[in-house]
Design a protein around this nucleic acid. Structure first.
Lengths: 351, 351
DNA sequence: GTGAAAGCGCTAACAG
DNA sequence: CTGTTAGCGCTTTCAC
């Protein structure tokens, strides 16, 4: 704990260096167009006084904040402990750091917080927002859009209306799911079950769709709803085993779910992969590598998703600042639209 | 992605409502001392224009930001994925929300980021800082203190000098460790081993000290260094088993470490708790309850730690604003000093 | 090149 | 009660 102290202002530095505020400002912001000796004097004064620009004052005139908000809707309370977010945040954080932008984390625990978040975004603290809206009926996307600032979503948002042309970064959930199921088919499995994620999330729906793409006219009893947690995976696995004792493969909507399923399979004496092959989704190392047997899974580069989100957002922010400047070389990846990253199948022992 | 738009200002609202800016300001900030009909008019104008106060402008004059920074030193790259932080952050977030304060997360990946963080803190974006400084030689604490703002540390900081009278919130690591080891002794175990955490972190050192408090003159071969990860736990367990095949209990510095140790014990055919009793630290539910056998552990209320940190910080911030006001009832817990939370032993099956 | 001056949008005395 | 008036600390024309 340290006591407060009046910070030196531009004015003070100017006085000390014997120049005008304008000159100090120039030096502080790069120092072009100021003669060397003066630059030197100012630099020294800044140093001696320990001057640091007041960002509030600066933002007031520049309208830039060099900060972006990351909004995470967390009605389920478990979101934060999820390594998935941790990884995305790492990616985001790295990219923002690269561009000298700050990450402001906005956690919303429910409706009550929405107002606060709305106020914050509208309050002009940040240049843009990265939004993770998990649930189909989440009011957050609309809210953010109303704040009228550059926004990029993490994962395809549930089209709640105003977000139709939202920019988002997502994995190819559907394609990845297809690949997983095809792999199981290639192993000769025919009774392939699927434990879904919570079906109010697009990622879960997309994976289910991918499963169905391959398993046309699948026996509906081979599909059980999970919730992306190990516990949910256990429950669903028990249900499936009950309903379809003859199943010979399981595609779990994520690795956590798969780990739960594995536990139940083992407990019930089914050998994996001999009796039942299992595939997960995510390739969350601490999970996928530690299961017994190790988990074959669909890998998505989560950290890269985060990085990409940040990159897209910053581009949008810059563009906005620059106005409709058309002299940027329209190279590959220069268009500002959603990105869907490919997935890859990682073979380990479970399938 | 949404286009930018010029936000309405106080001025605009005032014009529309036919009052002065001051009146609008009053209404927006609570509306005391403004007659009802005017309040109504202003409210309507605010509504119609979708006015939201510009925080930069506000902060410029009030010197308040209603935001606090959470600084996490992350040289180890794994920190964020650690549920420990997730939980603390949840606690912090909840408490801040309660006080309408924003959480600004500052992740530092290494020296390179320190400058940026320093600038940010000094830049006057936030009212105070919550700092997690894990390593003994971390320059972060000093840096933050130099920013001269109210600060509360998460965990006892490694006394790097300027932080001697830092305010921090910590668990009673040493006491908890003592209780764990005493419990093992009570079970009749005499060859109790300890897998430490990384010894450049105070929490790890404190737990080791607690272990030593009880195991006076312990055989040094019964102590192996881990790193708070399952992998580290495995490695250390193998070493211990090699060095002291006769050990009959293990106190692991945290649950993750314990889970690794359990795996090795099982793999080497030792029954837990019959042959070797195991105790962890943290009581991280997803870990402690899922191990086989379930883990006896020292529980610390991590989320509460977070909440407490936030509460202490906000109190300091208010105090600063209020100046040395001495009319607050000096009730219990009103003093602004460090807090060490008690731990409790949670008995499950492993010891 | 450098300085003077005019705000950015808001709050906080101070009058009335 | 309400309006007027100063700034908060900084950037940015615009002259010199």
């Amino acid at each position: 704990m340290t006591e407060t102290a009046p910070r030196p202002t531009l004015e003070a530095v100017a006085a000390r260096a014997g120049v005008s505020r304008a000159t100090v400002s120039r030096v502080v912001n790069g120092g072009d167009g100021v003669r060397e000796p003066l630059v030197e004097r100012v630099r020294r004064a800044v140093e001696e006084l320990g001057y640091v620009p007041n960002q509030a004052a600066r933002s007031l005139v520049t309208k830039r904040h060099d900060a972006v908000a990351v909004v995470i809707a967390e009605p389920e309370t478990r979101v934060f402990a999820d390594p998935f977010f941790a990884l995305q945040l790492r990616g985001i954080s790295k990219e923002l750091t690269l561009h000298d932008s700050q990450l402001v984390l906005l956690l919303t625990e429910g409706r009550a917080d929405h107002a606060r978040v709305g106020r914050y975004l509208a309050g002009g603290h940040v240049d843009g927002a990265l939004v993770f809206s998990l649930h189909l009926d989440d009011p957050l996307p609309e809210l953010v859009q109303r704040a009228r600032m550059p926004t990029v979503f993490g994962g395809r948002p549930g089209w709640s209306d105003g977000t139709r042309n939202a920019v988002y970064v997502d994995s190819d959930n559907r394609g990845g799911a297809r690949e997983a199921v095809r792999h199981l088919m290639g192993l000769g499995r025919r009774r392939v079950a699927h434990i879904t994620g919570p079906l109010d999330q697009t990622s879960a729906v997309d994976r289910l769709d991918g499963f169905r793409d391959v398993m046309v006219d699948v026996d509906p009893r081979l599909i059980a709803e999970g919730d992306f947690t190990p516990g949910g995976g256990e429950r669903a696995m028990r249900v499936l085993l009950e309903r379809c004792p003859d199943l010979d493969a399981v595609f779990a909507a994520n690795d956590l779910t798969a780990s739960g399923a594995l536990r139940v399979l083992r407990a019930q004496g089914r050998r994996v992969p001999d009796d039942v092959a299992v595939i997960g989704f995510d390739d969350m190392l601490p999970v996928a590598e530690q299961t017994d047997p190790s988990l074959t899974t669909v890998r998505q580069d989560i950290e890269e998703m985060g990085r990409l989100m940040a990159r897209l957002l910053l581009r949008a922010v810059d563009r906005r600042g620059a106005g409709p400047d058309e002299d940027e070389a329209p190279g590959v990846g220069d268009r500002l639209s959603s990105v869907v990253l490919p997935t890859t199948l990682v073979r380990r022992d479970s399938a």
